[in-house]
């Protein structure tokens, strides 16, 4: 009797679980499906293609426009630079924070996180002036550096939780074998936390890729990233199909990265007591 009732309620639970998950799927992917569909539709009246007809024209227009192609390249360059710089400074800091206790260590991560949560609008004007003096305007280097402001804290957080998961004996063995600190990092630590480095790259990549406020003020006259290139497509008659095709292209790198880190993405957020 009891068994029967519990298996009945189990069926209800499973059905409602999958119903909820289906709703979630529709809500999350619906807007993106629409975007992909419109990117294959001609949305402006044209001579030989009717409005609303299926076409590859939007994508052909992108690749025929050197500015749009260049913007894709610009974005990829500064995002990659940012990931490299962030990893270079965050890895030793994360190691120090998870292995050693030193003066101010408990305040440090919070202090760093303060930069992550400071709104970019607040800093936009002085950052623009500072970068004008440093000759870093309209250059991917400038955006890559300023994006470290919010990526370095996140990277330290994720990396240190992966490093903490490795037993200390691991380091001690390597040092006893006579490896230098640098050698230990490259030959032992980085392979051991490879998934953590993957997750860190993923989050640094997306947070840099999606950011617009700094990207806009630092590229007012040149070196525009893909986000700004899309913004510039809006005008008196906006070709929504073209905008959507550009949006779809802007999603490709992120989606590819998601696929690579899919099994590790939820592992990097342990918080040390």
């Amino acid at each position: 009797m009891t068994r029967k009732r519990s298996s009945g309620s189990q069926v209800v639970a499973t059905v409602s679980r999958y119903l909820c998950l289906t709703l979630l799927l529709v809500f999350t992917l619906g807007p993106l499906v629409q975007t992909v569909v419109i990117s294959f539709v001609s949305t402006l009246p044209r001579e030989n293609v009717g409005r609303g007809a299926w076409t590859l024209l939007n994508y052909r227009h992108i690749f025929a426009d050197p500015d749009l192609v260049a913007s894709l390249g610009n974005s990829l360059i500064y995002v990659s630079l940012n990931v490299i710089v962030t990893l270079l400074v965050a890895l030793p800091a994360a190691y120090a924070l998870s292995r050693h206790s030193f003066v101010g260590d408990r305040h440090l991560l919070l202090l760093l996180l303060t930069f992550r949560i400071t709104p970019p609008v607040v800093l936009s004007l002085p950052v623009f002036l500072l970068f004008a003096q440093l000759n870093l305007l309209n250059s991917p280097v400038g955006i890559a550096l300023i994006h470290c402001l919010f990526n370095v804290p996140i990277a330290i957080w994720i990396l240190s939780s992966f490093i903490t998961a490795i037993p200390r004996a691991f380091d001690e063995t390597a040092f006893l074998d006579g490896h230098s600190t640098a050698g230990f990092f490259v030959k032992f630590l980085m392979p051991a936390i490879a998934p953590g480095i993957g997750v860190t790259c993923f989050f640094c990549f997306i947070f840099s890729w999606v950011e617009v406020v700094f990207a806009r003020i630092l590229t007012s006259t040149g070196g525009k990233p893909i986000t700004m290139a899309i913004q510039s497509l809006f005008g008196f008659t906006t070709d929504i199909g073209l905008v959507m095709a550009m949006t779809v292209l802007s999603l490709v790198p992120g989606v590819v990265l998601i696929f690579f880190v899919r099994n590790h993405v939820s592992r990097g957020f342990e918080i040390r007591a």
């Binding site: 999350t28 975007t35 890729w209 899309i230 949006t247 802007s250 999603l251 990265l257 696929f259 993405v265």
Partner: peptide
């Protein structure tokens, strides 16, 4: 699979979210 799906909106550039 669902974690992958949930992560997709995170990779959309912020100025394109309102456009979409």
């Amino acid at each position: 699979f669902f974690l992958m799906v949930l992560a997709v909106p995170l990779v959309v550039p912020w100025n394109m979210i309102p456009i979409i």
